[in-house]
Simulated scan of single mutants.
Amino acid sequence: MVQVSDAFPGFSVNDVDAARAFYGETIGLEVTDSMGGLNLTLPSGQGIFVYPKDDHEPASFTILNFEVADIGKAVDELNAAGVVTKIYTDPHSYGTDERGIAWGSKTGQGPDICWFRDPAGNVLSLIGQ
């Protein structure tokens, strides 16, 4: 059996500098240089490795979910920072409102959630607590 001492998730981006600015300044995570890429430190202390990939293709699924106390306020803050939060426009898919929030707590269909993309096109979300 392999003796694993730790594990961490990772994902690729096409521009490490843009990722550093986005995750550090826009999202507010601790970002440090690591192994030719970046280490993001989540509020829980978990680290995520972000690595450069020349032929990067954005993940078509949600790679990170950020829990927030007030999803409406968090969406407004992202929008003020220039982040587009309405990435799903088909009302039959997720039933998002004009800001891109799917109000699961109001419809009984899961959590309040809003999807958006990082500068590399990877899908992220805010989830209301």
Rank of each mutant, 00 (worst) to 15 (best):
M1K: 11
V2Y: 11
Q3Y: 07
V4I: 15
V4C: 10
V4P: 06
V4R: 08
A7H: 08
P9H: 07
P9S: 15
F11Y: 13
F11V: 02
S12M: 01
N14M: 00
N14V: 00
D15R: 02
D15G: 03
A18D: 14
R20N: 04
F22A: 06
Y23C: 09
E25G: 02
E25C: 03
T26E: 04
T26P: 01
G28W: 10
L29E: 09
E30W: 01
V31Y: 08
D33Q: 10
D33N: 10
S34I: 06
M35C: 10
G36S: 05
G36D: 02
G37K: 05
G37S: 07
L40T: 01
T41R: 09
L42E: 09
L42Q: 14
G45C: 12
G47D: 11
G47Y: 00
G47R: 14
I48P: 02
I48H: 03
F49M: 15
Y51Q: 09
Y51D: 08
K53N: 12
D54W: 00
D55M: 07
D55W: 09
A59I: 00
A59M: 09
S60L: 09
F61C: 08
F61T: 15
F61Q: 11
T62K: 05
T62F: 04
I63H: 03
L64P: 01
F66R: 12
E67A: 12
V68L: 09
V68M: 10
A69T: 13
D70S: 13
I71Y: 02
G72N: 15
K73Q: 15
K73I: 05
A74T: 10
A74M: 10
V75W: 01
E77G: 00
E77V: 06
L78E: 04
L78A: 03
N79K: 15
N79V: 15
A80E: 14
A81C: 03
G82W: 12
G82Q: 11
V83Q: 03
V84F: 08
V84S: 15
T85H: 07
K86W: 02
T89C: 02
D90F: 07
S93K: 12
S93R: 13
Y94W: 13
G95L: 05
G95D: 06
T96D: 14
T96E: 13
E98H: 14
E98V: 13
E98A: 15
G100W: 00
G100K: 01
I101E: 04
I101K: 07
A102G: 10
A102K: 07
W103F: 12
G108N: 09
Q109C: 08
D112L: 04
D112T: 06
I113P: 01
C114I: 05
W115D: 07
R117M: 14
D118G: 06
A120S: 15
N122S: 08
S125P: 01
I127L: 12
I127Y: 00
G128H: 04
Q129W: 01
